[in-house]
Design a protein around this nucleic acid. Structure first.
Lengths: 232, 232
DNA sequence: TGTACATCAGTGAACGCGCGTTCACTGATGTAC
DNA sequence: TGTACATCAGTGAACGCGCGTTCACTGATGTAC
């Protein structure tokens, strides 16, 4: 416990940092990430603007922290559902899909901060890309479990009833991004990409409001798409 | 021709408006849409800031105009490829998909202005939604041609070899958005939604740079996804 | 073709605003003896 | 337990900036007779 012992001051610092971030999220929800203003946050907390510089070096650090928290939160949700399972663990793809949608609907702007229009010139620090790799690892785990394992020995032809996907060849040669699962067959990698891109497709259109006014039920559309990812 | 006759002044006005929009796009490409500044554009054109108010009522009108132009440009590309065919006309879905990708890569920020993170509080004027309906009509046309026509008389069960899609039932009841094609079968509507959401998924991830560093070829991934939309 | 007038593009000064950020300072909280 | 000192949260004034937008005005361009 010695490592996590906090002096009252440290405790307080952390509380204020959290409150700043909370107000920041509220502001983002109201007017978008680009309108985030330190002064406005301070005023909302009943403090003067410069006070925030005790807690964040500058505006950019705050935004980076928000992005990190967003990734962390999604990764945790994934791990809780499908991570290396001590507790709940080992969720299937449909469950992961629902976790993703629930997480996104919880705070659409948080989703867009990660997957939305990129901020020109912004590059995420390395520890953030590491979190996104944790996320990917959970997804790959579920995909590997959903797909027939690669047989050792000579590479078999396509299974009967399965048309060969030409992209699988490309994947077999470009799998650095899936380093967490070096033994997963290309079809599992393919499945992960499909899961990611298709769900991002429906979800981001839904969150951006492109389905409103069309009279469709986005939840049904989402479920239908999940269905076609799983039963390929 | 009388309707399109332009006095020199009208001509000039239009030229300047075009130049303003041009610089606006450059600025958006550099620092994102939210950083768009009238003063900066004016300076770049060698004019004083207030001069622009001869051409646009305010900043919002300029942005709306940019969005309108973006939609118009995409709709025109679609119509040229697959629209009600006098000239080229009647392109299939794969061709439409390539048109979409080419258009998006031509200017990623233009794509994101339409399909990216929504601006909180912004509502597109009606003539813009009309353009997006033109776009949809072209897509629906191609989808209707790619799908077995609905048989008149009693609704048949699912075709042999085709598993019934539960979402098609929902679509049969909610097809106002496809008013341009009142006779298209639900499966065609479904195909259009699939085309739209899946291609938006891969494309927006690509444009946002989420594939960079993964070592994948986005063009191949895109083509593979197109393939699985068409040969379902 | 020439003159009188109306139209309109563009300027420069000004307003009020909010932003990020720095700096010197006050006062409260914690630490060491 | 009490005192002396160090740490640190927060303030208020200030800097420089760029923004959108208005206004009264100048000067060039087009129009009518």
């Amino acid at each position: 416990m010695t490592g996590t012992t906090k002096t009252p001051r440290e405790r307080y610092r952390q509380q204020v940092r959290e409150e700043v971030k909370e107000k920041a999220w509220q502001q983002i929800a109201g007017s978008g990430a680009s309108a985030l203003s330190l002064n406005a946050i301070a005023k909302q907390m009943g403090m003067s603007g410069p006070a925030l510089y005790r807690y964040f070096a500058n505006r950019d650090e705050l935004i980076t922290e928000l992005i990190r928290d967003a990734y962390r939160s999604l990764a945790d949700a994934f791990i809780a559902a499908g991570g290396p399972g001590e507790g709940a663990g080992r969720a299937g793809l449909p469950e992961l899909a629902r976790v993703l949608r629930r997480w996104a609907l919880e705070d659409p702007h948080r989703y867009f901060l990660i997957y939305g229009t990129p901020v020109p010139g912004y590059h995420a620090p390395q520890d953030i890309t590491a979190i996104s790799q944790e996320l990917l690892a959970v997804l790959l785990e579920a995909c590997a479990a959903a797909v027939p394992p690669a047989a050792p020995g000579p590479i078999p032809g396509p299974l009967p009833g399965t048309e060969p996907d030409p992209f699988d060849g490309h994947l077999a040669d470009h799998r650095e991004w899936a380093a967490s699962h070096p033994d997963a067959p290309p079809s599992a990698l393919r499945l992960a990409l499909t899961f990611w891109s298709r769900l991002h497709g429906v979800l981001s259109l839904e969150l951006a409001g492109h389905f409103t006014g069309m009279g469709l039920d986005p939840a049904l559309l989402f479920e239908a798409e999940v269905d076609r990812i799983v039963t390929r």
